[in-house]
Structures are given as structure tokens and as C-alpha cells.
Amino acid sequence: MAGDPYAALGLTKSASDADIKKAYRRIAKADHPDLNPDPAATARFKAASAAYDLLKDPEQRRRFDAGEIDDQGQERPQRRAWRDHAEAAGNPYARSYGFDSDPDLSGVFSDLFGRRGGFHRGHEYDDPRDFHVRGQDYRFSLQVDFLTAARGGKTRITLPEGGDLEVTIPRGVRDGQTIRLKGKGGQGLGQGGAGDAYLTISVAPHPDFRREGDDILLTLPISLPEAVLGGKVTAPTIDGPVNLTIPKGATTGQKLRLRGRGINGGDQHVELKVVMPPKVDDDLARFFEQWRKDHPYDPRAGMKAEG
């Protein structure tokens, strides 16, 4: 503190003893280093602590107001040598923040710190009564697989202070969506409630399924005989395999719909893809040579040449 101790507390010389204590309590709650890491706040707190240490004692306050001691609590040069005063027993300015062994401030700091944490100089106080801080919110990025996102499920996350937490993933959660877990963040101070945990979800891609809104898209390979003759084939869905009827003469790109097989009432759209056998043998080649002679057709009819 340098200058006017009343100004350091935001007061004037007309302030009462109660005003001085109240002002210091207010500054301590806002600017104590364990609560506010801002260097400017620390400087304000130190100045207020030194001012309170000077003004809390009626005799010291009287002597300061009378000009007998300065704002550091030191005797004016004409009254007493500085070294004599500095080395005198009970000089309050041997203390850094002005509240060591001060029963008047036990109420102030019991409001700030519980026995769980104390503060950085190692002191401990009673549980807080009227100073309450909500716990810190936690934020996580969580990747889930496609089917867990589509169907819902459970997973576990590790918390910053140790331990883990089981998390329920709601059915149909989207990539980039944030889930709030109320009260699953850091513990509060005093009667301040716990913070929340926020999970930002990223959905891993699936080798077969794609999502469009609440619909599921699937490309389904079918064989040449299945495309020609039609029939029932097994098709995967997010909830398990189902039978799908392939019409005769199916072609690549043709789309079929499975109603209600998507997410939350959406559908699954199945796009067919005709896949040739791994090897065209002589029997298949001879068959199609004869078939082509008897059944000529041009699948490119109607296309206009560019140029």
C-alpha cells in the first residue's frame, strides 16, 4: 500500500469501524489470490490488507489521522527512528497480508475457504457459510462409433480429478452435438453446487451406413442372378439384419426403402449395386453371346454425344 489507506478500501476518513471491516471483506472475497489469479487483483488485495491492518486498531487509526505515523504504520522521522519501529515487537507490517493471528478476520476467511482447501499459506478455517462458488464446468470431446450414436448406448469417461463416469449416449445423437451432464462437473465451494460436464460428440464413420437426417443410407451389392431373377436377400440395418425383396431386372443405382428402419422413425434407403462374378467363365460368356444375338438392346440409347 502506498498513499491513502482509506482510498485502498474505497472509503473516506469519515468511515466507521464497521464500514472498514465490511469494505475489507468485500475486497477479500473478490480479489484474494486463491480466488482471482489476476495480478491486478492480487495488488488490490495486498493494498487493502495493509490498509485494514493499519485502520482496524483504533489507536493506530487515531495516530495515522493525527499524522503521528505514516500509511506504512511507521513513526514520522521527527518522532521515532524507522529502524526502532520496524524491529519493535508487535509491528503489524512484518506480515505480508495483514491477517495472521487476527481473530477479527476469522469470520472473513471462514467465508472464503473451507477446511477442504484452506488457502495457499496453509491456514484452515471453518466451513464456508455465506461465500459460495459454483463448481467448474468440465468439457470433453468424445468419439463414439456410428452404431452407438444411432442406437444409443453407454460409455465411460475419465474425470480430471480421477475416477470415471458412466455416460448414457442418447439414441440418434449427431456429430458435433453437445450433451450436458448436470452436476457432473467440479465440486463447488461452500453451498455452491457442482458444475456441469459437457460432452461434444464426434461420430466415427461406418464402413457401410451413412446418415442423412434421421434416414440411413446403404449401398447393397447384389449378384448378377439376383439382379436378373430377383428374390429375397439379407440386408443389414442399424438394428440387425432384415429380409429385402429384390425385384426382377434390378439395376445398379435402383433404390428400395425399408420403412421405419432409420433413426427415431426415419427410414433406411437401400441403393442396389450389381456386382459381376469374380471371373467370367466360358459358360457365362457363351450364354451371353447367344443371348445378345437374340435380345439386342442399347442401354445408352438417347444419350447425346458431346463435341
Rank of each mutant, 00 (worst) to 15 (best):
L55F: 01
Y297V: 01
H85D: 11
G114L: 06
N243R: 05
N243M: 04
P160E: 13
G172R: 10
A15W: 08
F99P: 01
T155D: 11
Q254K: 09
G307S: 05
I222G: 05
Q78W: 03
N264W: 01
E271P: 00
P39T: 13
A28F: 10
D175V: 14
A235Y: 05
R115L: 11
D127Y: 09
G163D: 14
G3Q: 05
D100L: 14
D281L: 07
L54C: 06
F99S: 11
H132S: 07
F64P: 04
G114Q: 05
D283W: 00
T200A: 14
G249M: 09
D38K: 10
T245S: 15
D17W: 00
P58Y: 13
G73Y: 06
K22N: 14
A227E: 09
I238T: 07
F119P: 00
E212W: 07
A197H: 13
K182Q: 13
D164Q: 15
Q136C: 02
R121D: 14
D17E: 12
T158W: 13
D214P: 00
K46D: 08
A18H: 02
V280T: 09
V133T: 08
D53V: 12
F209H: 02
R63D: 14
K184V: 05
V133C: 01
S14Q: 14
R62M: 08
G230P: 00
P299A: 03
D145C: 08
A94E: 11
E75M: 09
R26C: 00
P33G: 10
G188W: 09
M303Y: 08
L147A: 09
Q78T: 00
L159R: 09
V274T: 01
G265Q: 07
A23N: 08
T42H: 11
R259N: 11
W291H: 12
D145V: 03
A94D: 12
D130G: 08
S202N: 11
H206G: 09
T219P: 01
K154Q: 15
D298Y: 02
V275K: 01
D137T: 06
T178G: 14
F140R: 03
L9A: 11
Y125D: 02
Y198N: 08
D175L: 14
A51R: 00
W291M: 06
D104N: 04
V280L: 14
R116W: 03
D84K: 13
N91A: 13
P39Q: 13
T155G: 12
K273F: 10
G176M: 01
N264K: 10
